[in-house]
Amino acid sequence: MTAVHIAISRKAFPSPGGTRANPIITDLAITIDRGEFVCLVGPSGCGKSTLLHLVAGLDRDFEGRIDFGTGDITPQIGYVFQNPRLLPWRTVRQNIELAMPHERKDEQLVEHLLEVMGLTAVQQQYPERLSLGMSRRVALVRAFAIQPDLLLMDEPFVSLDAPTARRVRQLLIRVWEERPHTVLFVTHDLREAIALADRLVFLGPSPTRVLAAIRVDIPREQREDEALIEGFRAELMGGFSALNGLI
């Protein structure tokens, strides 16, 4: 488990014309506690995905620092991208096992996760034969299988139909409760965020800044209750007029 301290003073992408690039993130500070499930909520294009990229270390071209409080040891990071990103030339099982570092290879855990996600029957198939929903579940298993200290999720349920999304969401929580770890989850769907998170962090449009951070106090076992979620959402929107029009 690991905490994440994000302090980014400036992140910009080089513009193609060579003119001065507009920053996509300025003065952003977020701290995520150990084992906390945080949802980043914000409009499309506000730099949420960019932020996850920076946290994962895929892009080091920014001003500021991202610290895991673990000294020199970089935490094991699981990353669920917006698209499943499976290697089409490797089977489902191989895709999962390839991501696992040698010292954390746990066959039983993989079996268990495949079982929970309903993928046991397709584990020897190639990803191109799977539906999008199944591919997404494989990507989730891959992220869980490495037993991450930190799990980054970038709208992992987008373009899933509502019942499938709900099922996969329940599975996510189930697996997370079996083995708690820090989660940074990006979404633009506020209901989804309320159903999942310990804490919501609202981000404004580019250049990204934190609009508000709100603790979700609905007990975990009542998160399936649509009315409760909706009530929380309505209250939230009423209390923070700044969020109107953004979410």
């Binding site: 990229h53 994962a56 270390g57 895929l58 990071i77 699981g78 990353y79 991208f81 698209n83 990103r85 290697l87 030339w89 490797r90 390839l98 991501a99 570092p101 891959r142 490495i146």
Partner: peptide, 24 residues
């Protein structure tokens, strides 16, 4: 590029990346 990022995020390392991501 997506798959290269995947390999980087999951720390495939050079040999694994070449064999399973680049070569195919």
């Amino acid at each position: 590029r997506d798959l290269m990022e995947l390999a980087q995020a999951y720390r495939f390392g050079w040999i694994k990346t070449f064999r399973h991501v680049i070569w195919p």
